[in-house]
């Protein structure tokens, strides 16, 4: 299972903060993003979100494997 975390407007649209997706082999972050939306529906603004893999920022082409946590980080607004 790949554990997906959603925040702010993305969590609001999905109706949940956590989604699990099973992957047969490894997938890219971009593929995970597509699979996520197949499962929960289209998430407006997710293309503009940064992605963190196990709490570190990564690129869309990075590989995700079983057990990883992928977080979609919409534009931040702390401070």
């Amino acid at each position: 299972m790949v554990h997906i975390l959603l925040f702010a407007s993305l969590a609001q649209q999905a109706g949940t903060q956590k989604v699990s997706i099973s992957v047969d082999k490894s997938a890219t972050v971009e593929e995970i993003r597509t699979m996520l939306q197949t499962q929960v529906g289209k998430l407006a603004g997710i293309e503009g979100a940064l992605v963190a893999l196990n709490e570190e920022y990564v690129e869309l082409s990075d590989q995700v494997k079983d057990g990883d946590t992928v977080a979609f980080i919409p534009p931040v607004s702390g401070g």
Binding site: F7, Q12, E47, G48, L50, V76, S77, G78
Partner: peptide
Amino acid sequence: IVPIWKKEHYTDGEEWIGNQKGTQSY
């Protein structure tokens, strides 16, 4: 760079605020 988000509850509605440094997306 810090993953923190703010939701404004205005007197006339609510919204998640995007990047305050300018652009709404990356």
